[in-house]
């Protein structure tokens, strides 16, 4: 799988897909799931990232999410930005069919 976790990335967030409909979600600081990357908890350093990953387990066990993993993010002007093209596309939808879905709502992300 391409453009997943970058080893040694300083800041990471946790993403997964929701079981019932496959929608991309992020784990938030208050232990909830959000569809917006801006709500994601950002873990700095290896230990915090591992702790974040562990916090996904109850959601997996409760059959709420599938395939959780960490990915690299950066903070830019107070906004969370995915580092890879892949995660940017997961966040903001395909870079095509810009008339619908979240790619229409988050048009600024793809630039």
């Amino acid at each position: 799988m391409a453009q997943h976790t970058r080893k040694g990335a300083k800041e990471q967030a946790l993403t997964a897909n929701r079981l019932i409909d496959g929608v991309v979600v992020y784990l938030t600081a208050d232990g909830k799931l959000s569809e917006s990357l801006q709500d994601a908890e950002v873990a700095e350093g290896k230990e915090a990232a591992e702790a974040l990953l562990t916090r996904a387990t109850p959601f997996v066990d409760a059959n709420e999410i599938i395939e959780p993993y960490l990915f690299a993010v950066e903070l830019e002007d107070g906004r969370i930005r995915a580092v890879s093209v892949r995660e940017t596309i997961r966040q903001a939808g395909p870079t095509v069919r810009l008339d619908l879905g979240k790619q229409a709502e988050l048009a600024d992300v793809h630039g």
């Binding site: 799988m1 391409a2 093209v85 596309i89 395909p94 870079t95």
Partner: peptide
Amino acid sequence: LDYCNLANARSIPIAQ
């Protein structure tokens, strides 16, 4: 990569 979990790069925008 606009849709596919296995992709390394986007195809559709290139074609477009």
